[in-house]
Design a protein around this nucleic acid. Sequence first.
DNA 1: CCGCATCCACCGTGATACTG
DNA 2: CAGTATCACGGTGGATGCGG
Lengths: 132, 132
Amino acid sequence: MSQRNTRVPHEALGEICPLNEVLDRVSGKWAIGVLTLTGAEGVVRFTEYERGIPDISRRMLTLTLRNLERDGLLTRTVYPTVPPKTEYRLTEAAHELTETLSLLTDWAKRHQAHVHVSRTEYDATHAAPRPS
Amino acid sequence: MSQRNTRVPHEALGEICPLNEVLDRVSGKWAIGVLTLTGAEGVVRFTEYERGIPDISRRMLTLTLRNLERDGLLTRTVYPTVPPKTEYRLTEAAHELTETLSLLTDWAKRHQAHVHVSRTEYDATHAAPRPS
DNA sequence: CCGCATCCACCGTGATACTG
DNA sequence: CAGTATCACGGTGGATGCGG
């Protein structure tokens, strides 16, 4: 032992690898909005996302949708009608994910005031106080 | 009921705002590692992070630490000794956060195989199949 | 209606070197 | 030991226009 850097850093860090994978796929401003909306509606069409999620661009919506589909979180059903029609819905895995996510929301709601205060105080304390 | 284009996007989306704030502050490759390690150790010094989190640069560690401190998730205690010594520990809010995060880890562990398979299949299906 | 392609701006991240 | 400063790069996201 004591030699030093065996590549294993710390027991607990083995836990974070899968966690980072989750966050990677949920990161980006829009993924969570899409998942949440889909969970709430059950079945959602492309245009409904555009109407339901303010300020999202078509490009970002498409990319988000594709990534979630790729990860097996959304199913995409295309009806080759005219005009075309596409439906998205959550997979079972995604359902469980959104449930867990709602726990995070609870945390956020309980502590967002605390966080905001901390930030303000920190900024006030550490911000360059006009160092002439 | 057919009119439905008020600017209000959707009920459920009100829920995601605080959630995005959480993810924003937990985003970045390192924040979770830092929180997890700190939670496991209780008290952690700067160098311990460097040893415990592989591949993290000093710059990134500092930035991550500062952000978490700013958000009231970490406390920073400096001992003006020679050589200097700095200790970090979790706030109560951060403790609750890491607990919730561990639930996400559970989800990730349960579904990472599924996700991986989905990805591989998706890539196999959609990848440019040698467009000669 | 649904989606892709292109171009461009921003910022998180990393490498390296310096300091109290 | 515990940072800070500077430079460079790549991924993410926005705007716009075309296509099935």
